[in-house]
């Protein structure tokens, strides 16, 4: 009899819990209906789903791209056995390297730039947030320091590096970038560090008053992707004609 009572109590407990959940969900639904006047949760959820789909598609396309690029390497190597083509292929690989169309690795630095913490547009100077001009300035310093290849937020920079600003957002080849902005550079590490640490404008930006956050790390192996891993290069040369 005592055992039966315990079961009864337990059953009642579960029932009450389910009832509670149902009431709670009902209230939640009611609140959601009221909230349509404010932030549109349904639209947020749809947009979030769409974003997940696009992200998943990007991962698939990226994997496909890697597979195709690897197949291309294998095929070109097979052509390399042909004496007539060997010289052409050497030049092909050299051009690809100079154009940023092949992945590269080497010693280098990884630099991160970020806006001032809790940036307040009313009290903080405009320099406290990173602009396209700040990125371009740092890139120019790195090239002057002897950088041989650079990627900005994972995008390999080429001869036609489009880094621009739309309002507070930085675009790289038309793609929106978010802070922290990571610049990876292969080159003479000591020289690269020297140009960054001795630059007066960077010293000014990183002082407490301005508050731009800059970190520089050395790395024995910096791996930079090929431009083709993120973009198609042909639209960037379609107006160029031979003289």
């Amino acid at each position: 009899m005592n055992k039966f009572k315990k079961w009864q109590n337990g059953f009642l407990l579960i029932l009450a819990l389910i009832a509670g959940l149902s009431v709670g969900l009902l209230i939640k639904q009611a609140l959601t209906v009221h909230e349509t006047e404010g932030p549109d949760l349904a639209a947020l959820e749809t947009a979030s789903l769409d974003l997940s789909e696009e992200e998943a598609r990007y991962q698939i396309l990226k994997a496909q791209n890697e597979e195709l690029e690897n197949r291309k390497k294998v095929l070109l190597n097979r052509f390399g056995d042909n004496e007539d083509l060997a010289g052409v292929l050497d030049e092909f690989h050299e051009n690809a390297l100079l154009a940023g169309m092949s992945g590269v690795e080497g010693r280098g630095i990884i630099l991160s730039l970020d806006d001032k913490i809790n940036y307040d547009p009313l009290t903080d100077p405009i320099e406290s947030i990173i602009h396209d001009s700040t990125i371009n300035y740092v890139l120019n310093l790195l090239w002057a320091g002897g950088a041989r290849a650079v990627a900005f937020n994972g995008i390999r920079l080429t001869a036609v590096s489009e880094i621009s600003c739309v309002g507070p957002t930085i675009l790289c080849y038309g793609v929106r970038q978010m802070p922290p902005y990571v610049i990876e550079a292969i080159g003479p590490v000591e020289d690269l560090e020297a140009v960054l640490y001795t630059d007066s404008y960077l010293a000014h930006l990183t002082q407490n008053k301005i508050g731009v956050r800059l970190t520089v790390q050395k790395s024995e192996t910096v791996r930079l992707p090929s431009f083709s891993q993120t973009h198609d290069y042909l639209p960037y040369i379609n107006w160029l004609r031979e003289p």
Partner: peptide, 11 residues
């Protein structure tokens, strides 16, 4: 009490 717990979980 269970109803209250359920509501809290739902929220």
């Amino acid at each position: 009490i269970c109803i209250l717990v359920g509501m809290v979980i739902a929220l």
